[in-house]
């Protein structure tokens, strides 16, 4: 039996975020909180391995108390256990401090049941850094497999895994030993639907809440703002371009006239665009 830990994050649905035009602050009101979409590929892959080889899937997240909702959702998809690592002392953590806290919590999980694999999404949609997964792997001294598009084989007995990893110019086929940490690429699988029995179980399961002490962290200088080497020194809105578009208009405003006028203006002012077109055009 394999014990798989899946790290997830509750994020605001970034597609629905607006910035206040005057104060430049994020307007969070009414923006739904969701499981980071990339993490669903990680969770589904973990559940597939569990289906195939038997196993136990623990989901873990670090966040505010309301992040429990994300964990309950993960339970309804079929995870077996859920842990919310939450403490005011974690506030203001950057990726280094976050990976410290999560790695420490995972060490506590291991005290009850050794961990064979850790799954993460390739990145979050709010921070977009893709740094926490590698950070956890390094802190736990695990093999790190990022941008995995498919898990070709798992040998539970030999504790070996073969995966396909996306690289810039192709796909690497890698073999490594468990335990390891995998970050899954988007589109690598499709999240299952929650089943009725799992939904009922999710509602009944107690999500464990771990504070800093329960997560095995004594040194507060390693977590939260204090444990973060990076500081945000300035937040500002992108500067608006001062020059607006030259709007192409003609007497008739017929499509043929408009595009004719556009080409004439553009080729006069930007002859290099014309040269470029002549090089690449297929006419």
């Amino acid at each position: 039996m394999l014990h798989i830990v899946v790290c997830i994050k509750q994020v605001p649905d970034s597609a629905q975020i607006r910035v206040h035009p005057v104060t430049n602050t994020i307007m969070r009101q009414g923006v739904p909180a969701i499981i980071n979409p990339y993490d669903l590929y990680a969770l589904e892959e973990a559940l597939r391995i569990k289906d195939k080889f038997g196993g136990f899937v623990t989901v873990i997240t670090m966040g505010p108390p309301q992040a429990e909702n994300a964990l309950r959702k993960a339970l309804s998809f079929g995870a077996d256990d859920a842990i919310l690592v939450t403490d005011r002392a974690f506030a203001g953590a950057d990726t280094l401090a976050t990976s410290f806290a999560l790695a420490s919590a995972i060490r506590q999980i291991e005290k009850n049941m050794p961990v064979d694999m850790i799954f993460c999404g390739k990145q979050t949609i709010d921070g977009d850094t893709a740094q926490v997964g590698p950070g956890i792997a390094k802190r736990l001294n695990l093999e790190l497999l990022t941008y995995i598009s498919s898990i070709t084989s798992v040998s539970a007995g030999k504790k070996e895994i073969v995966v396909q990893r996306r690289s810039e110019g192709g796909v690497q086929v890698l073999k490594t030993r468990l335990p390891c940490l995998v970050t899954m690429l988007e589109g690598s699988n499709e999240m299952r639907f929650a089943t009725m029995p799992n939904m009922i179980r999710a509602a009944r399961t107690t999500v464990k809440r771990w504070d800093r002490i329960a997560a095995g962290i004594e040194d507060v200088t390693k977590i939260g703002l204090k444990g973060s080497p990076t500081v945000v020194s300035k937040v500002f809105a992108p500067s608006p371009k001062t020059v607006k578009a030259e709007i192409v208009q003609t007497e008739s405003n017929e499509p043929q006239d408009l595009v004719g006028s556009l080409l004439m203006r553009m080729f006069t002012k930007f002859p290099h665009v014309r040269e470029e077109l002549e090089k690449s055009a297929t006419v």
Binding site: T95, L96, S99, A130, Q131, P134, K138, L144, T230
Partner: peptide, 19 residues
């Protein structure tokens, strides 16, 4: 890139510095 992000995250954590 996929390579650069993989390496940067690992190096920064190993060196315990900001990225």
């Amino acid at each position: 890139t996929t390579l650069g992000r993989d390496l940067a995250g690992s190096v920064a954590t190993t060196l315990k510095t900001g990225l």
